[in-house]
Design a protein around this nucleic acid. Structure first.
Lengths: 390, 390
DNA sequence: ACTCGACTCTGCAACGTCGCACATTCGCTA
DNA sequence: TAGCGAATGTGCGACGTTGCAGAGTCGAGT
């Protein structure tokens, strides 16, 4: 079924002819191997080499001015007569001149590029959907400010060489999405010397800007909500405590309980993980030792959905018998049956703020590094209900 | 009726960004704890300028050799004595030298960067989740080959200037994910002169490599499946016919019907769109004029889920009374109730193949541009069943 | 002792751009 | 008409890197 049909030839030489430089030697990079013949015989083998880079000099020659004048025109500087400017602009358009980004960066010491580094626990992005929003926000904000975005992924098994790469000067600044409390990227980026803002990991490094969500407050809100519904024995399905956000959720959980005069119990807190299966298995373990539990406060939506799954399989009614809450408001949460009560984290806005902060820092903003925390929103759906018999 | 979540926009974020740590009005009645704005004092204001770039020359001075020798060591060239090499390496480590990417690119004429341009119909990435897989595949493959990835988004309202930017020489090659049959990026990229591979849009340009999925064959399989279940009046909820993939699905639908001796009927084909709401509304329109329909072949999973929702609300049983099929196998499809019968498109593999092709082309592979088509896999779940009374 | 080649290493030039100092032209005032 | 400043254009150099040509050193073969 997989068919592969090689295709040949195309018309790029025609196009070159349109611009009139096909026979002019100087424009073709002739190093010492001649591409002249290649060009005429032209299979497309050396495709990318055939279209020579048009430089300021070429435009200057075409317009009959010095190349510095062309530079002035393209950079919109003053001190060029209207007539000259028009002539130059015509030549630019005709030759399709585009400034060479590498040369500009080299000369100016700025790359006009931002780097987004995302830490992934999984091979794919699949599990942690909020990252879509983060990516979109950063690109939107960066584009708007004239920056490009370099996207990099990092995983636990990255080699030291790979890590070192993140510290290079390819970008003017970095947005790091990495909740690990001891991220190996931190020293690299600190050393790299370009401004960095870290998302949801405020303690990573004091020299980084930080954008965080109020995980503690969110958890507190949610657990209070459960308590108001009459729940007293609320289990917490937790994720890796090495993540700042996990610790925050746990803290908020305990705070809300204490606030209501309930002492947190160790055997109600269960390390789960972050997938559906993790959630289902953890719910099973908790219920095995504490059948009196009436609510599950889960560290994220997937574990919550897993818990829901286990509860239904084991013959319990979700919301009537046992309440379940998630965290993150991934799109699945809304469309699950029953729709999941959860907490929304304003990822888009947070990522946008992070980007703005980096851009500000590059421009020399005095306020860098700053730290901001965003509120988290309670989303009530149908997996929570009054505690049985209350 | 589709339940739509109230989702207040956090529009204050720009303002907040400008002023630093503005405490935002809580999105919900959050507990009113101050969102603290700890701010490290900024001696670090001109942060990015403080750490000077360490160059070959600096390393050379430290190691007592010429800078060319350092270059040799860094690039792992031969003809350097073991003693010198060690001395240089020590100096490199001590000074934290990192090659200047701009200078390398300028000199070598290669940026070692690939560009992924994604066309979006929505502001966010949210609706079209397969893009996660595409991004991950491209980054994985690119990283493995020593390339970085520049991620760009394009929308229908991009300005000509923005479009022109995509043709610059910042990257050695481009992967374009844009199903529009007349994408404005095509001329730009063709002119740009770097190798380009386009995903799921094989007719865009003959000079581009192409990776496609067998949309026709997938649709044919699915409709055959429905026919085998006894369905005869099968509606098609379609998306924008300007998209290559939409045309393919439609074609496969018609082919499978004709194959079975069923003449496609115009009023069974309904332009829907690509969201849940679109799907629900379209299903309603079709059933209003053709209550005899027993199956919906939907252009994608979201419209299918919308159709399911409408059918259930209107008192019909999905699978027993009416069958519904999706296309794409997004993660929602698996966890919906009932789980959706759909077609899986191997996005990861396709994106990986596209990346390999671009990388090959940059390296001068003779086989560029090539065209490949990937098969699509039928995923049977629980929204399809025998036609009523068959 | 001399040549020769292999092995090390050096220095210059150039990639495309932009900052700077300067050259030329022009219109206007003294 | 000379003088003078503004308007306009030129050319050099440097950013950090790599390709190239070649210089120096050393040991082995004549």
């Amino acid at each position: 079924m997989l068919r592969s049909e090689p295709r040949e030839e195309c018309s790029s030489s025609n196009e070159a002819a349109d611009h009139g430089f096909v026979t002019q030697a100087p424009l073709v990079k002739a190093d010492n191997h001649s591409y002249y013949s290649v060009r005429t015989v032209s299979t497309l083998s050396v495709w990318s080499l055939l279209v020579a880079q048009v430089g300021l000099k070429d435009v200057a020659r075409a317009a009959g001015v010095s190349y510095k004048t062309v530079s002035r025109v393209v950079n919109g500087e003053a001190l060029v007569s209207e007539a000259t400017r028009r002539r130059v602009e015509a030549a630019v358009a005709e030759l399709g001149y585009q400034p060479n980004h590498s040369a500009q960066s080299l000369r100016r010491g700025r790359t006009h590029t931002l780097r987004l580094i995302m830490y992934l626990r999984e091979t794919h992005l699949r599990q942690e959907r909020f990252q879509d929003e983060v990516i979109a926000a950063i690109i939107d904000r960066a584009t708007q400010a004239g920056y490009s975005v370099l996207l990099e992924l990092t995983r636990d098994d990255d080699s030291p060489a790979q890590l070192a790469r993140f510290g290079d000067r390819r970008s003017d600044g970095t947005i790091l999405l990495d909740g690990r409390s001891a991220s190996p990227l931190v020293p690299t980026l600190r050393r790299g010397g370009t401004p960095t803002v870290i998302l949801v990991n405020p303690d990573a490094d004091p020299s980084f800007g930080s954008i965080d969500a109020d995980f503690v407050g969110g958890a507190r809100q949610m657990v209070r909500h459960l308590i108001e519904l009459g729940h007293r024995r609320i289990a917490h399905l937790a994720d890796d405590p090495a993540l700042h956000s996990s610790r925050g959720r746990r803290q908020g959980y305990e705070e809300a309980l204490r606030e209501a005069g309930i002492e947190p119990e160790g055997d109600l807190m269960e390390p789960a993980g972050y997938t559906r299966n993790h959630g289902a298995a953890a719910a099973e373990r908790v219920l095995a030792r504490r059948p009196d539990v009436t609510a599950f406060f889960c560290v994220n939506d997937l574990t919550a959905l897993g818990a829901v799954e286990y509860l239904r399989q084991s013959g319990r009614r979700v919301s009537e018998d046992v309440s379940v809450t998630g965290y993150d408001d991934i799109s699945l949460a809304r469309y699950a049956t029953p729709p999941l009560t959860t907490l929304r984290i304003p990822w888009y806005e947070m990522a946008e703020a992070a980007t703005s902060q980096v851009i500000g820092a590059v421009a020399g903003d005095e306020a860098f590094p700053a730290r901001r925390e965003f509120p988290v929103e309670l989303i009530l759906r149908e997996t929570t209900g009054p505690a049985p018999g209350s």
